[in-house]
Design a binder for these strands. Structure first.
Lengths: 190, 190
DNA sequence: GTGAGCATGTAACTCGTTACATGATTCT
DNA sequence: AGAATCATGTAACGAGTTACATGCTCAC
């Protein structure tokens, strides 16, 4: 049982899904592809934590709808109270910062443009995700009993993180532009 | 040349360092251990991007001080203007959120306690790192020419991210505590 | 007709982690 | 006496990515 396996049963606790659905859902906060997910689902099924129902389709490929078993539900509870391992973050961007002081101003500006574009794209994604959620959910999203609750609070955090990222870009730019002149502190620091 | 290799030459562009130093420095924004770094350093040396000077020590083990070659410097420039690959984030915590709605209130509270402890620990780390930087650097840290500039802006961002994380925890708690009563929106949403 | 979406699966490969290996000094 | 720091390295393993493989429908 690796972390991704627990992630799969955790997502399945919100509702039964196919491996394809899980792949789409999981990508927002855990990089992985279907090639990693399908074998793990089979393993979970063998171990009895999940079961699946095969559904024939005629216009689309047949699919397997996975859901949690009682044994899987039990495992979920044990995992939830176990220690959470620290996050793994690997961002090439942060490496580029280390040599920024050696690069020409126009190159740094282009780099910051790219970073901002990246953040803005993410922002749109999250906004859309929240819209979709509020359409699908009958209850308020701020209902702690709703199956969307986890996704909702997670997306809110991610959204605020990218907004912070955009503020940070502005702040870095301001230092950069004023490097020979006086400093204008745009209040990024707290 | 993988991303970590570029990270190594980027860090070496700030000052010559040993593999041991690089390991310590890199850990703040890229999970990896010395076992991954030493072989890559040898490879970079073989390819002529870095060179090292062996330094004998008597109280401590001998060490190899690595620095960038002209060829390495050229590569650094090419890499800096190349497209930055998107960040990889894997946080077990985000998986736990998905099944939060099924867990008892006290378990959720304990989970949030753990998350907060984690953020607070990080906050202390970053504060200390900033202190050390300002002691070591002769110039102002907000000098875009300083070799500490990259580390400084990166640490500021990381620090603001954990502060945001702590606010987020409070917000989630507030929803949780008031689930049967009326909602108190603590203004986390923007 | 070309690409995107739906849907599942395997094989080879790359990258990172854990464990093994060594050894002196310093702090608790 | 035991743990932490400094300092380098290799081997086995685990996890994730890229590429291979198939095939039908719908929109542009």
């Amino acid at each position: 049982m690796n972390k991704l396996s627990y992630g799969l049963i955790s997502l399945l606790s919100t509702k039964p899904m196919t491996g394809y659905d899980l792949t789409l859902r999981i990508n927002r906060f855990w990089q992985s592809t279907h090639s990693a997910i399908y074998p793990l689902l089979s393993e979970l099924e063998e171990k009895g934590y999940v079961k699946f129902e095969e559904k024939k389709q005629f216009d689309k490929p047949d699919k397997k709808i996975y859901s949690l078993t009682d044994k899987g539900m039990e495992l979920l509870g044990e995992w939830f109270i176990s220690e959470t391992s620290p996050p793994v973050v690997r961002d090439e961007m942060s490496f580029k910062l280390s040599c920024m002081h050696l690069m020409d101003d126009d190159l740094v500006e282009k780099f910051l443009d790219e970073v901002e574009r990246r953040y803005n794209k993410k922002l749109e994604e999250y906004k859309k995700a929240l819209e979709v959620m509020s359409l699908k959910s009958r209850e308020s999203l701020e209902d702690a009993f709703s199956t969307y609750f986890g996704a909702y609070v997670l997306t809110q955090r991610a959204m605020n993180e990218v907004i912070l990222g955009l503020e940070w870009c502005k702040w870095v730019r301001s230092i950069y532009k004023n490097k020979q002149f006086q400093l204008i502190n745009q209040n990024f620091k707290r």
